[in-house]
Design a protein around this nucleic acid. Sequence first.
RNA 1: GCGCCUGUAGCUCAGUUGGACAGAGCAACUGCCUUCUAAGCAGUAGGCCAGAGGUUCGAAUCCUCUCAGGCGCACCA
Length: 568
Amino acid sequence: MKDEVIKAVRKALESLGVTNIPDIEVDIPKDEAHGDAATTIALNLAKPLKKAPKIIAGEIIAKIKETPNPFLKIEAAGAGFINFTYRNDYYHGKLGQLLEKEHDFFRADIGEGKKVQVEFVSANPTGPLHIGHGRGAAVGNALCNLLRSAGYEVEREFYVNDAGMQIKLLGLSVYTSYQQMLGNDMPFPENGYKGDYVKDISVEMKDEAGDKYHNIPFEGCGDVFTAFAYKKMLAALSRDLSQFGIGFDRWQSEKELYDKGAVKDALEHLKKNGLAYEKDGALWFRSTEFGDDKDRVVVKNDGEFTYFASDIAYHKEKLDRGFDTIIDIWGADHHGYIPRIRAVLKAFGLSEEKFKVILVQIVSLLREGKPVQMSKRSGEFITLREVMDEVGADIAKFIFLTRRSDSHLDFDIEVAKRESSENPVFYVQYAFARISSIFRQAVERKIINIEHKINPPIRPLEKGGKGGFESIHDIDLTLLKEGDEIALVKKMLLYTLVFDGAVTALEPHRITYYLQELARLFHSYYNRHRVLSDDMDITTARLALCKAVQIVLEEGLNILGVKAPERM
RNA sequence: GCGCCUGUAGCUCAGUUGGACAGAGCAACUGCCUUCUAAGCAGUAGGCCAGAGGUUCGAAUCCUCUCAGGCGCACCA
């Protein structure tokens, strides 16, 4: 919708002899009175051309009107805006294209096949996923879908912290629980993991190994317990995520980075390039060189690596694997790490703008407006699994995507469960289901002979008793003259713009809002006009319109990772 | 003390990367089911965009300061 305006304005300016034409910015006005698209080019040219904006606007308009164009109206307004209104045939033409190409109509190639790596969730495998991880998972998943639709080659990755102190502590917790179960009176470790899952794993251990490790000190069998607990936890993580509808292309183990020497190599590389130095018996990364506040220790004076050391190796690996852009999705409480990771990537030669961090804010869990306490210490927290079981994955995902990711989110479990208008998921899904229902009716009434699926073209059985349609071109879309029909088409074309914005800003929530707006227009249309009527020509045209809406709804829901149900 | 994020209707939040009179949902009130799904629709009401300066044709949006809330500032993981 913007392209035609840009083209027309550029041509006009060229034939007016304007050189150095700046970027022609086009907005979609909020107010219908300002047309379908508007440009501020006359305002922007006022200074360089030393002319009043209104005069420039007048000249541009006159020029455009001299040549064929898709506009019904072009007028100057306000301080120097130029407002464009398209003729209906423009919209009918676009609708035809949409119906012909279906989902391909929206396939953009912004990414040009560039490789993007998105790392998200990356929860420690020491406890179940909580609701905050769920939000990160929903955002990451939608973002990956978005980028893939935009023509990027996307790899989804989960980084598994299986090498540090915490995983050992998990092993020790399970070990202790196991010993206690066998009657061994042993104090639970100070910072141990106290959740029920620890007990569950120790029970599984006992089922498998019996009392084989009874009274054997942790030094003697700790590795067995740690490995066992880790395996169980990772399996649980993976299972929960896949039930949530989220899959990863790769699970990168931190331990593996150590085992194959990647950490050592990365640090060697830094040393060789003078980016690491020894001080006070420790090895430091010169991160201040790349904008960090202070240099960071990577090897402690006791010879142990810091957690940051493996992060360096990990991010170096990402670069070595040839990604053009690296996106990390973190909990907002990790924002302090951005400068140092950015420093790492810069040190290895990635330009600044190719590393992006998306911070996902805390989720506050509520029940009927009252906060649900979440405390790891007491072992009392709501897991993602519980939320899924209680409200369902689709609802949870949609709600996670109704906010900007860096904005706090209140998640009220009771409200989310309600099948009412308080719940925006249903509003959008309902629009889709309603259209499916219309198609089922149309089949029943022998208006069309296909299933109500989106993919096959509409083939009416009769048109004035002269046989059926073979293609979308046989449908007279110009019969869609109602204001709200044109408004629907306009909205559908806007999808492309919303999509582009969502991709460049890395903000999937824009799709969520768009879908609600499109659904609103459809519901309104549905209540005002009947799709199936005695007038076969109008019926067919309206069915086509409905189908287009359905395609767009499905397109958006697919990006969010939310189902488009045919019945509700 | 330093840094990051947030502050928009009673509540929860959008706001097209600086555009025209500030938007939606919920909650409140009034209507609409013999006809394609009422998980819906139509309408009413609701605002000092935290505050003060600045930048310019134009600011919720950019800059500075103030206030309020959250988070982060390890040879922890």
